[in-house]
Nucleic acid binder design. Structure first.
Lengths: 236, 236
DNA sequence: GAGTGGTCTAGACCACATC
DNA sequence: ATGTGGTCTAGACCACTCT
């Protein structure tokens, strides 16, 4: 059984995307929506909070819920987006080359970050080509505990799809840090860096929904092909 | 009268920060907290959702709310942080130099972005010095409608403080885009760029809580002094 | 089975905007 | 005064984890 407030959310998103209401116009009131969907006002409010968090509406006390300009704001809001999704969205011609798969040496400092007592850690290095140019190096580390098997085929595709669909794992949250660094020798060897003397580095820690650290990633981008979008809402 | 769930949230944050509960241990259950704070479970849940959104806990169905490692995750999560807050947090020696204040020419394309029919648009250019080096150029645009007066003194300090405290305006949400570009001649003139041939550009659109566009900012950073942290949680 | 968090309800009262 | 969203309640039932 689908959750009621998610159903309402989905229906409202569809209507907004199809232009049911003009930008800057008001959604029906919470009481009207509660009647319309034959539910309680609190449940409607949960759906509206989702719409607000995702940048579809702005709630204004005493007035109503204003439709925001979908073309300006609708994009995958949160940061957990895999390269493949991104590339597919943009309909770019992309290729992934697996450079290296293996276990991390026990002495490497990365072991302490994972804080695991037993089991090994996978590491994978991949290069992402966009329209023929080598633009991104992805260096991933996975705890073997969660990802028992990592084949070249899996790495060629989307590791996240493999996780969610084959292994039944779900991501809970992620911490991400973006900095700009000098390119390493490896960056220079693996990428078409042109004359750029900087490289954009996105380091992330990805946790499952039971709060166990599951993946550490370092994604190194040629600066001109990097773009990060963020939608932040005042907390209430 | 302070909102009850915010009070509970604040108290729990304080306790977590002071190490009342160890990382990876469980918070008291929602029922216990409801008794403890003499309130209903739904109100406790609102407080816990705030804790979760801000990276203090991870809720796990059937088990409880796990305390996360505060040292790892606690930072101002959302993106609306002014330069001054940031600098004060880091206790760095910083100075702001106002380069230019004035009205934007009517013909400039920025007018169409604001979508206003009457009133002018302020623009301010400021250079931020950190420990003696000129690191950041901030180019801000404000609608005169909301910010009637903009003095050199205000610009020298925090414009946001001026807004919230003197003008009674509150920020609702903001959209932010981070890219890396080639430095302009102005960047080269205003900053100590060293040999870097890239510059990090953060463009933001800031909206008030009635969804009116109030500010457009372009913040241009020397790449080695740039750092962006993001905490993303799966939406529920 | 007992305890946990997740969803849903029907109703109350408050704060704010509008007329 | 009326309508809007914001807060709060007391209780119900469901889904999940653990023993």
């Amino acid at each position: 059984m689908q959750k009621k407030y998610v159903t309402i959310y989905d229906e409202l998103v569809t209507k907004i995307k199809h232009g049911e209401w003009a930008a800057f116009s008001m959604l029906p009131s919470e009481n009207e929506l509660a009647l319309l969907y034959n539910t309680s006002r609190e449940t409607v409010r949960k759906a509206l909070n989702l719409l607000s968090q995702n940048g579809y509406i702005q709630k204004i006390q005493g007035k109503g819920s204003m439709i925001l300009d979908v073309n300006k704001f609708s994009f995958p809001v949160s940061g957990i987006v895999s390269f493949k999704e991104l590339a597919t969205n943009l309909k770019l011609d992309t290729r992934t080359k697996v450079i290296d798969i293996g276990y991390v040496d026990k002495e490497q400092p990365i072991y302490s970050k994972f804080q695991i007592d037993s089991g090994r850690i996978w590491h994978v290095t991949r290069v992402r080509e966009i329209t023929g140019e080598r633009i991104i190096v992805d260096k991933d580390y996975f705890a073997e505990e969660f990802v028992p098997l990592l084949s070249k085929e899996i790495c060629q595709g989307s590791v996240y799809e493999h996780l969610e669909q084959d292994l039944g794992l779900t991501i809970g949250f992620a911490q991400k840090e973006i900095t700009v660094e000098e390119p390493t020798e490896e960056d220079k060897a693996l990428l078409d860096l042109q004359d750029y003397n900087t490289i954009v580095v996105i380091k992330s820690l990805v946790y499952l929904d039971d709060a166990s650290l599951f993946q550490i990633t370092e994604s190194r981008h040629r600066p001109d092909k990097f773009r990060f979008v963020d939608f932040a809402r005042r907390m209430k």
